[in-house]
Amino acid sequence: MYSEKKVEPMKSLSTPSQPEIISLRNDTKASRQRIKQQNRKAALVFWCFAGPLILGLTVFFYIPIIWAVVLSFANARATLTPTGFVGFQNYIDMFKDSAFTSSLGTFLLFALFIVPTTFAASLGMALLVNSVKKAQGFFRSVFFLPTACSYVLASAVWRMGIFSGTDSGLANTVLHLFHLNSFDWITTPTPPWFWLVLVTVRLWLQVGIYMIIFVAGLQEIPRELYEASYVDGAKKGWETFRAITFPLLRNASISVLLLNIIAAFQAFDEFYNIMFGGNLSLARPPLVYIYQVAMFNQDFGHGSAGALILTIIIIAFTLLQGRFLGFGKKD
């Protein structure tokens, strides 16, 4: 019954996925009526389910966020009590601060690079892992293992074990095998090899978890769909991937993209730990700069303003991808 629909990839994004079709069929008019009558009861039930979370988020997120918003319009040095309101001055100062704006620029580029790369790598690995019959669990485990390592520790391994600029680093030991000289991976501004270090550690740490999300999505695609399309003459490979696999991975793709974008803009630990001291100015993420302003310098007014600018950028990017992919839609 699905095989009649030869869906175009773009169109498929707005086509309800399979479980939603079922839900449309089953939501009869009568049951909708009943739901309307029980609205008040539903609200109570809803709060039974979501209440604990919302309470916790209120204490540990919403109040601090509102606090930060207030501080962003105020003078607050070495105190969390505003000592005089300054309007938008903190925001203006941050936009005038070349260290902040250049780090925002660098990280727009970083996000444009790392998000598609991580997405493609994790999807590719999921397809590859899912395509083999033997030792599937083993490979899945191996690719997921780096998730067990914290950013701080992975940074230490990358900085001190793999990409150190001396003869003792793994990367340079490999270069010696090819009779090349030791290379200074992290500290030279040109050519910017430090990006290779930063990108590989991020991929190593993150790809596994996104791959698992994709594998989960892949395993939920009913096999009948493929079989029906083979009957219709579709070939294994790119054709079925385009017509069936990718469209039905919509939910997984949305999750992976969203988490990826947020993670890219919130980059912190590996930069902070690998690009130490005078190297940090080569690639300083906005969050690290905000952290320096708010934590080292105790300037919570400017720190909060910078943080909110960053938050607005993250939200803007999320909404943008939502426009294209219809993220978060219920039906």
Binding site: V59, F61, Y62, I63, P64, A68, I262, Y291
Partner: peptide
């Protein structure tokens, strides 16, 4: 409410860190 939950994902934790600590 769902969107407000999503919002918490986008707030860098390092930033609300000090208010949370004070609470």
């Amino acid at each position: 409410i769902f969107y407000s939950v999503l919002l918490t994902l986008m707030i860098p934790f390092a930033v609300i860190f000090v208010p949370v600590y004070v609470i």
